[in-house]
């Protein structure tokens, strides 16, 4: 056999072999992130045996991939943030993490703040506020106050008496940060209160992949979790997101932990750690 013919045979062989390997890699990769119907069905049965009921249709079939991203607290330092909200002039430290000026007060607790103007702010922006434009109005106000409102979701609530409360949730690569939210309370007279906690993600440095448990594994963990309520439990919703966790202390920067939010039929939400600890 000539070398030329041998080469031809080898080329055909390696093309076929590489095709098989590539197909195997793609299939296995896809398989690793997909939860089979059998597994879902088995999980539902195990849950029911433990008095927990869930519609199999709400269990996601694909395991999300997560990166260990770091977010930065919009509050870099209490006094500096208070001056940013109230203006730099005449801000006094009243003690107990309370700052005061002629413009209003800002009070801090761990990552959270409550800013109450002495007289409503931005009345020129809120004079025609209604349920439809409340979210957009609040975004404009917060941007003027120096907040980065990109990658955020808003929900507006009509409180009656012309008052609207808009809640903003930050999303990290489309995953909501569950335990951090920013609220704007306003009426036609202006902004009456801005409060909550807020983290910003610059997206410049991408973290490493975090190995996570499948949602079915999390549901099994939920059976014996101390967070599970006693008696019959009905799960209404499952959502994947992240949490700063441990809200009793201040975080300058933090890598939010991936969590599954389990919403029960009584409105209660339980957050289960989704990290696969090895």
């Amino acid at each position: 056999m000539s070398w030329s013919r041998a080469k031809t045979i080898l080329i055909i062989f390696f093309v076929a072999l590489n095709a098989v390997l590539l197909a195997n890699i793609l299939y296995t990769d896809n398989k690793a992130s997909v939860i089979s119907a059998d597994v879902i069905s088995s999980t539902v049965q195990v849950l029911e045996k433990n008095n927990i009921y869930i519609n199999a249709g709400i269990i996601p079939k694909k395991a999300p991939s997560v990166k260990s991203d770091e977010v930065t607290n919009v509050i870099d330092e209490y006094r500096a943030f208070a001056e940013k909200m109230l203006g730099a002039d005449g801000v006094g430290d009243m003690g107990n993490n309370v700052f005061d000026s002629t413009g209003g007060t800002v009070e801090f607790s761990a990552d959270s703040f409550v800013c109450i103007p002495k007289n409503p702010w931005y009345s020129e922006l809120t004079q025609n506020v209604n349920e439809k434009n409340a979210a957009k109005t609040a975004v404009n106000i917060l941007k003027k106050s120096g907040f980065d409102m990109s990658s955020s979701e808003a929900v507006a609530e009509n409180r009656g008496n012309g008052e609207f409360l808009v809640k903003f949730t930050k999303t990290l690569r489309k995953r909501p940060i569950f335990d951090s939210a920013l609220f704007v309370l306003m009426s036609g007279e202006g902004v009456k209160k801005i409060y909550g906690s807020w983290f910003e993600y610059d997206g410049l440095v991408s973290g490493k992949d975090i190995p996570t448990k499948n949602v079915t594994g999390v549901l099994i963990d939920f059976i014996n979790s101390p967070l599970r309520p006693q008696g019959e439990v009905r799960i209404e919703d499952l959502e994947f997101g992240c949490a700063v966790n441990e809200n009793t202390q201040y975080h300058k920067t933090v890598m939010p932990v991936p969590v599954w939010r389990i919403t029960l039929n009584n409105g209660q939400s339980v957050y289960m750690d989704a990290r696969k600890v090895q």
Binding site: S68, G207, N245, Q249, T253
Partner: peptide, 8 residues
Amino acid sequence: STVRRYTE
């Protein structure tokens, strides 16, 4: 990757 991390 999995440790809980933050900055004081």
